[in-house]
Write a protein that binds this DNA or RNA. Structure first.
Lengths: 125, 125
DNA sequence: AATTCATATTAACATATGTTCATATAAGCA
DNA sequence: TGCTTATATGAACATATGTTAATATGAATT
């Protein structure tokens, strides 16, 4: 790629360097650490799959066991367990055991708020 | 409420069919249409990539042009444009043109709230 | 109109991510 | 103990998704 950038003011360069230096610098200071961005995207990624989102939504309505989730969402049991593992590792979901049955529920109230907010957004077409 | 995996009624079976029929039915009624779940997960998917999340976060701080985003995030221009296209199609982002330069900004106030909420969640370790 | 430059697009490629099958674990019950 | 059941795990496979490189578009200036 050629270097095709003509500065209009000193400090204002373009093409892969940015036209508005002041804006860039100002925003740069407000950006989260790149590590935080990775964590945050990993978090949102959990909501980015429809089957997992189904699980999350269901758990936002009621505590449920693995078996019930399978029935509700018509998924195979290992698939549900896998997703629940992901969700648990990232503390979206918590579990309690009662005999053979393991019950899952949302770990946090933020989660259902996030769900509703997202739904609001796509609803206002 | 709790019962074992033994069918109490015909039709109440476990193993891939669900233990707690009443819970399942109750939650089922509160679940969004599966189409809505797909749309919603597609929406959240946009936040599930760290480079795209970088773009979104940056735009939540200030309107910026493509070129500036490249400089800020150290990304190649086609990559930025590509992501912006995704974001625009789903109305996360809007654009305005001023001469040769196209400026992007968030289309909605919900978006930055979502960002902050997510960040709050992962911060409370 | 020709040229320059900011941005957009397309298709090929690489990688991440979800699903599946087979199997393992853990708990209750005979 | 053995057996059954609910859940968990591991590895192979399939697919989705982001990146890249090459190229195209469109606006402004000359």
């Amino acid at each position: 790629m050629k270097e095709n950038c003509r500065p209009t003011n000193p400090g204002d360069t373009c093409a892969v360097k940015g036209i508005h230096r002041n804006v860039i610098n100002s925003v740069k200071q407000k950006m989260p650490e790149s590590v935080a961005l990775f964590e945050l995207s990993d978090f949102f990624k959990l909501f980015g799959d429809s089957t997992r989102l189904g699980i999350i939504w269901a758990l936002s309505e009621s505590e449920m066991c693995v078996c019930d989730l399978c029935a509700l969402l018509k998924m195979k049991q290992p698939a549900v367990s896998h997703q629940l593992k992901n969700l648990k590792q990232t503390r979206v979901v918590k579990s309690r055991r009662d005999g053979k049955v393991v019950y899952y529920s949302l770990d946090d109230e933020h989660i259902s708020k996030l769900l509703k907010m997202g739904m609001d957004h796509i609803s206002e077409s």
